[in-house]
């Protein structure tokens, strides 16, 4: 059970840090925040790549490849759309428009 405890510590501390940081995100940016965390969750790539490329058996390879596809969709699509939104807010701040 030792290994689980170390990981639980990391989980709790990361959750705590996340809570502290995200509390300070203004409601203005809550939608981009959501799509940003979505993009960050594409880190499941590190798990799915090992499954897809592990050459273990056919089913694992198929499941892994679909998982890599899904995570990449979130990485690419998530980054682009978050940036698109943030660009709009950024433009407003520079006073280029109203």
């Amino acid at each position: 059970m030792d290994f689980a405890f170390a990981e639980l510590t990391i989980f709790v501390l990361a959750g705590f840090v996340g809570f502290q940081v995200i509390t300070r995100v203004p409601p203005l940016l809550h939608t981009p925040l959501m799509s940003a965390t979505n993009m960050i969750s594409a880190i499941s790539l590190v798990g799915s790549i090992v499954v897809a490329g592990g050459n273990h058996d056919t089913l694992s390879t198929v499941l892994g490849t679909i998982a890599v596809t899904c995570a990449t969709i979130n990485l690419v699509g998530g980054y682009i759309i978050t940036d698109r939104m943030l660009k709009m807010f950024d433009g407003g701040a520079k006073g280029g428009h109203r």
């Binding site: 790539l45 590190v46 799915s48 790549i49 090992v50 897809a52 490329g53 592990g54 050459n55 390879t61 892994g64 490849t65 679909i66 998982a67 890599v68 596809t69 899904c70 995570a71 990449t72 969709i73 979130n74 990485l75 690419v76 699509g77 998530g78 980054y79 682009i80 759309i81 698109r84």
Partner: peptide, 29 residues
């Protein structure tokens, strides 16, 4: 992750990355 010694079948990884990008791009743009 790509240099992880467990990853040997790169063609599947590549397929997933390419497919995901192709689908993800329009979902972003």
């Amino acid at each position: 992750t790509l240099v992880n010694h467990e990853v040997v079948a790169y063609q599947w990884v590549l397929l997933g990355l390419v497919l995901g990008s192709v689908i993800g791009w329009p979902l972003g743009m």
